[in-house]
């Protein structure tokens, strides 16, 4: 079951080399290393010789799927963790990408990313959509995801205090927004002044409102990949609110975002017998 990063890297390089050599794709999006810092960074390669710059290890936290939106008209291969494949499935469901332009190199049996708390909750360790796979698929039965959440145990007042403390540190750099696969709007509500949704200053009440509004847009679309949390330079628990909504979607509607390119999003669909907890009679 244990996947070896060296082997994964070699397999990825092999696929990338062949695809570029045969001219099947114009570019491969994967992970590489920065020359000076040695940190993992997204890498875009166009020549077969460059494929030995590709790597894969436990630091590959960025969600590469978002870059696909920059290359809608060209043929692209992408190194995709299972969460990336879910993002891609969502994009396909929303008609944002053309499947025939895409070559997905899925990572089988994803071991999780260092420092990403979302990976502890992950139940999808194999790609949901792929053309090639690297590594050994993981047996779902072996998984024991931790879904319990300390926040659920708290009272409303305690949670309010918790989120106030978290969001008070927000500097409104919008890294969470830019890292998130859901956030591809031409104009974000934060930038809109007609209508005016939320103040751009770093007051706590506006920070709080921004995170609520951001999270509401994630409802039924968040795949709980943790990209927002990994991107946040201040280490704010920005994932807690959207992650809560993914749990609600699972419990109430048995809905899991990004599992199937044919699937409708939660909020663009309904059932006449939908539950309505908390509604007044």
């Amino acid at each position: 079951m244990e996947n070896n990063y060296k082997k994964l890297t070699e397999e990825i390089r092999g696929f990338a080399f062949e695809l570029l050599k045969d001219g099947k794709v114009d570019r491969v999006i994967g992970y590489g290393k920065e020359e000076y810092s040695g940190e993992v960074t997204p890498l875009f390669i166009t020549a077969p010789d460059e494929s030995n710059r590709l790597i894969f290890n436990s630091e590959c936290s960025m969600l590469l799927a978002k870059y696909l939106l920059n290359y809608r008209e060209s043929r692209v291969a992408i190194v995709a963790k299972p969460c990336d494949t879910r993002a891609i499935a969502s994009y396909l469901a929303e008609n944002l990408l053309k499947r025939e332009n895409l070559v997905i190199i899925g990572i089988n049996g994803c071991p999780g990313i260092t420092g990403n708390t979302a990976c502890i909750e992950c139940t999808v360790r194999n790609p949901v959509i792929f053309d090639f796979t690297a590594g050994e698929a993981i047996d779902k039965a072996e998984l024991s995801p931790r879904v319990a959440n300390e926040l659920e145990e708290m009272t409303a007042a305690e949670r309010l205090a918790y989120f106030q403390e978290e969001f008070s540190r927000c500097i409104r750099c919008y890294a969470c927004r830019e890292a998130c696969y859901v956030c591809y709007c031409e104009e974000c509500f934060t930038d809109s002044n007609q209508p005016f949704w939320v103040g751009g200053s770093v007051k706590l009440k506006d920070n709080f409102t921004f995170h609520l509004m951001r999270s509401m847009h994630m409802a039924g679309r968040c795949i709980n990949c943790g990209a927002c949390e990994m991107a946040c330079p201040e280490g704010i628990d920005v994932r807690a609110l959207p992650a809560k909504l993914t749990r609600v979607a699972r419990e109430l509607y048995n809905y899991e975002a990004g599992m199937d390119p044919e699937q409708k999003t939660l909020l663009t669909d309904y059932d006449v017998n939908d539950p309505q907890p908390g509604f007044l009679d």
Partner: peptide, 28 residues
């Protein structure tokens, strides 16, 4: 184009930069 290919467009670098000074105005 190649250098900034991976840039997400967030404001982290500018907000942490000790010399970036650009500002905007808000009325509330």
């Amino acid at each position: 184009g190649d250098l900034a290919e991976k840039c997400l467009g967030c404001g982290v670098c500018t907000y942490y930069c000790p010399t970036c000074y650009c500002f905007g105005f808000f009325w509330e």
